[in-house]
Computed example of a mutant assay.
Amino acid sequence: MNLRGLVSVTGKPGLYKLIGQNKGGFVLETLDAAKLKSVVNLSTTKMATLEDITIYGEEEEIRLLDVFETIKTNSTELPDPKADGTTLRNFFREVAPGHDEDRVYSSDIKKVITWYNIIKELPLFDEEAPAPLV
């Protein structure tokens, strides 16, 4: 799974594709049909790549990519992100066993489901990630 160029921006809904950099910050493009472009200044905005995001675990953190891979390989049916907390929690117990139920909130689970729905059709989702530089 190669999701290196996809980012989440604090305070903005959805996901973005990192398409460049200029003096003002990073140039991002929305992943929705509108394909809107915007510049994000990192001194005022936080941004995280999907490859770097982890979920609180009881023993160790769980990589978001591992959760996405579990959903993909198990063909797990996704609940509606607006489902009740019990439904969301039961789903997350299947795809992220060992997550810390006290620190992972329903809003976090909703975000994971929403993000998966955004990226599941992207060709990047089926590509292998490049090998890390040594």
Score class of each variant (00 low, 15 high):
64 L>R: 06
58 E>H: 05
18 L>N: 10
12 K>V: 01
24 G>I: 00
36 L>V: 11
46 K>S: 14
32 D>R: 01
72 K>L: 07
43 S>N: 11
95 V>I: 08
2 N>Y: 08
5 G>P: 00
84 D>W: 04
99 H>P: 07
3 L>S: 11
8 S>T: 04
94 E>H: 07
2 N>W: 05
6 L>G: 00
66 D>P: 00
17 K>M: 04
67 V>S: 10
5 G>E: 08
103 R>K: 14
1 M>N: 07
101 E>N: 10
69 E>D: 14
101 E>W: 07
63 R>W: 12
73 T>F: 04
86 T>R: 15
21 Q>L: 10
12 K>G: 00
8 S>L: 03
106 S>H: 06
2 N>I: 06
85 G>K: 15
9 V>R: 08
53 I>S: 05
43 S>I: 06
67 V>E: 08
2 N>Q: 03
32 D>Y: 01
74 N>H: 03
21 Q>N: 10
47 M>K: 10
65 L>T: 11
96 A>M: 09
91 F>D: 04
34 A>T: 02
92 F>C: 05
22 N>G: 12
101 E>P: 09
58 E>Y: 07
61 E>C: 03
105 Y>F: 13
90 N>G: 00
99 H>C: 12
90 N>T: 10
96 A>S: 15
41 N>R: 14
62 I>F: 11
49 T>R: 15
54 T>S: 14
50 L>P: 12
79 P>V: 03
102 D>W: 04
108 D>K: 09
15 L>H: 05
12 K>P: 02
71 I>L: 03
60 E>H: 09
66 D>A: 13
99 H>N: 13
104 V>M: 12
85 G>N: 15
5 G>D: 11
56 Y>S: 15
94 E>Y: 00
20 G>E: 05
104 V>N: 11
53 I>G: 06
107 S>M: 09
63 R>M: 11
97 P>H: 13
50 L>E: 03
28 L>V: 09
85 G>I: 02
105 Y>G: 00
63 R>P: 05
49 T>G: 15
71 I>R: 05
62 I>Q: 05
69 E>M: 05
4 R>F: 04
19 I>N: 05
77 E>T: 11
90 N>C: 03
54 T>W: 09
108 D>I: 00
97 P>K: 09
1 M>D: 04
52 D>F: 08
12 K>N: 01
60 E>L: 01
50 L>Q: 08
95 V>Q: 07
66 D>S: 14
30 T>V: 00
4 R>I: 06
55 I>A: 08
103 R>G: 03
105 Y>T: 06
100 D>N: 15
41 N>C: 12
26 F>R: 13
77 E>H: 04
61 E>D: 13
34 A>M: 02
21 Q>W: 08
45 T>R: 13
3 L>C: 09
39 V>S: 12
78 L>I: 04
16 Y>I: 00
67 V>G: 13
48 A>W: 13
3 L>T: 06
62 I>D: 02
8 S>P: 00
28 L>F: 09
73 T>Y: 01
25 G>M: 08
